[in-house]
């Protein structure tokens, strides 16, 4: 049973359908949300970002530039395409989305809409 399950899992692992969920850091400041995702093996042309229905989809197509698999002697990782979806809500200004890729790190900047940015409220002291 265990051997069968392992075999099935190994077959699934070999398929092209296999997808890696990249690990991310997300922070927020007054004006924007910034997502930093680790996507080694992806180059600029392989990145595809879509913001639709308050959902941000990150697609990363790997550029298979590893040496031929038949020469492998010791393996700890494999490269697969990346995919992750975030629910970003309606506070994002979808027209001003920015993204950059530097050495396998994708940075997506999601600016907030004007109306949700924090506003300074003047306090008047009445005498």
């Amino acid at each position: 049973m265990t051997a069968e399950l392992t075999k099935i899992k190994n077959d699934a692992y070999k398929s092209d359908e296999y997808i890696i969920v990249p690990s991310v850091d997300i922070y927020e400041n007054e004006n924007e949300f910034v997502i930093t995702a680790e996507m080694p093996g992806v180059d600029k042309d392989g990145i595809d970002l879509t913001l639709n229905n308050e959902e941000l989809e990150i697609n990363g197509k790997i550029n298979g530039n590893l040496p031929a698999a038949e020469n492998i002697k010791y393996e700890e990782f494999r490269l697969y395409n990346y995919y992750r979806k975030f629910n970003v809500g309606d506070s994002i200004d979808s027209t001003a989305l920015k993204a950059g890729l530097d050495n396998g790190i994708l940075t997506v900047t999601l600016p907030k809409k004007e109306e949700v940015k924090p506003r300074k409220i003047e306090v008047k002291v009445e005498h």
């Binding site: 699934a12 398929s15 359908e17 296999y18 997808i19 890696i20 969920v21 990249p22 690990s23 680790e38 996507m39 080694p40 590893l66 040496p67 031929a68 020469n71 492998i72 002697k73 010791y74 393996e75 700890e76 990782f77 995919y83 050495n103 396998g104 790190i105």
Partner: peptide, 29 residues
């Protein structure tokens, strides 16, 4: 089909060998 790369205490390494050449690939985003 979705999975996340486990965070390890060391970088992931692959070793390839062909004839008299070795190639090592390290995941270091």
């Amino acid at each position: 089909e979705n999975y996340t790369r486990r965070t390890a205490d060391y970088p992931y390494v692959n070793l390839y060998e062909k004839d008299d050449n070795i190639e090592i690939a390290v995941l270091a985003p």
